[in-house]
Design a protein around this nucleic acid. Structure first.
Lengths: 240, 240
DNA sequence: CCTTTTATAGTCGTCACGACTATAAAAGGG
DNA sequence: CCCTTTTATAGTCGTGACGACTATAAAAGG
């Protein structure tokens, strides 16, 4: 990369692909678009698009996020670069290098096509495969990344509405990790971490329609990291 | 990203940039090349180059790693994608999207220019800045990533020769983190983690020229993750 | 032979966490 | 209206990991 001979390099198309995740009814969902053309016509794919000449990949990703979800304000949503997928044959038509992002949404309004793209829809994470291109891999990487970051960051609140109960927060962990957690222990850990959540002053229950004792409401606190981490229960092959 | 109109996108140059880290004499070093031309002529920069038409970014990164270090076999070296830097103005000449990688080397032979690129040299990490382009940021991100991965992976052995002492392994942690660690406690933790290190059978000391009691030799074990993690000593603003 | 240096072994108290039990506050059914 | 069910919250107990520290072993140097 010393001098740039004008023909020393091959120009590539650069795109962004988005793994937009949310929780609907206690199940992990992902925002997908149906492909209308070959290749992979009729298949579901991650939303995405080209990076425009004056955009960074981050800017393009947030623009696509707004277009595909139809939300007016996506500035507060968690958006995070995953990695870049650049296998030469990942798109049979041409050389496309794609910067993948993961986005986390609290609630999940069914998207209304605000852009010119095909209509996007929420699909349960477990029903998503097989996706077009290498999007299965991207989606799996996004899931793994989010699951890992729940351990040592306060990212779980990104799945929650502005006010939430500890039970809802615990459901985030349980849904993403696919494991059950002990409720008193989860509660103790979250409350013992300064800045993770803050109680809402007049915080009675929100949905009084629930059956049991109404839960207190909390807001996300200023903390971003979790020390010591909240480790997911080990399955196999770990150390002591 | 539904249909690809041939002129619906702007072609970008795609490059890789490498943060090649090693330990020399108890100090973290980084492999740098001196720029001969504008912009940033005379400045140090991370080695890198264009992704060729039939390469993935990973393939290009390993090729560049071999070229810049002059090593014959780089297949066993740890090479890991960091993230992609795509700000529109990051290179004043043209639109360049760069996929950054971090590479970890055990020993540090002074590189002999095997390729056509400018001579690469090892510089102490702390003396490296300011670098050309946005390479300060890339280097900082690489350092942060490696430091974080030392906590929950067995990555530290990637800095060590095939056989090493526990003191050398501890020096990896101390150098990358910039903190001191208690030797008996470090030893206990490493040995209590199955598969992190394995004793060399006839493992007397390697350098009998040392002063104290010769240390036993170990090899890297099959484990890749560290559960529970080996957390770096917290400085400030953490939780309980 | 004694000191210095480095490696290795062991101790002790604290804290975090998993497992578990107990109590409180709501809804629903007889 | 009482009693069961359901969910939230409070507390207990034992184990294990880890930080801080002390002790012993094996080398080199004077």
């Amino acid at each position: 990369m010393q001098g740039y001979d004008k023909y020393a390099y091959e120009p590539f198309a650069v795109t962004v692909d988005l793994a937009v995740l949310t929780l609907r009814g206690g199940a992990l969902h992902v925002l997908l678009v149906e492909r209308g053309q070959e290749p992979y016509a009729g298949r579901w794919a991650l939303p995405g698009g080209f990076v425009l000449p004056d955009e960074s990949a981050e800017t393009a990703a947030r623009r696509e996020l707004a277009e595909e979800t139809g939300l007016e304000d996506v500035s507060g949503l968690h958006l995070e670069q995953l990695r870049t997928y650049s296998e030469p044959d990942r798109d049979p038509r041409m050389r496309v290098v794609s910067v993948a992002f993961a986005a986390l949404l609290p609630d999940a309004p069914e998207p209304h096509g605000g852009g010119d793209a095909a209509q996007a829809r929420w699909l349960p994470y477990d029903d998503a495969r097989p996706l077009a291109f290498d999007h299965d891999r991207i989606l799996a990487d996004a899931h793994e990344r989010v699951g890992a970051k729940l351990e040592y960051t306060c990212l779980a609140t990104a799945f929650c509405p502005p006010e939430f109960t500890l039970g809802e927060l615990q459901q985030v962990y349980e849904t993403v990790w696919g494991t059950g957690l002990d409720r008193p222990n989860f509660r103790r850990k979250v409350l013992a971490t300064p800045g993770f959540v803050e109680p809402v002053p007049g915080g009675a229950a929100r949905l009084t329609g629930g059956r049991g004792k109404p839960a207190a409401l909390y807001r996300a606190g200023p903390a971003t990291t979790l020390h010591p981490p909240l480790l997911r229960p080990p399955r196999e092959g770990r150390s002591a």
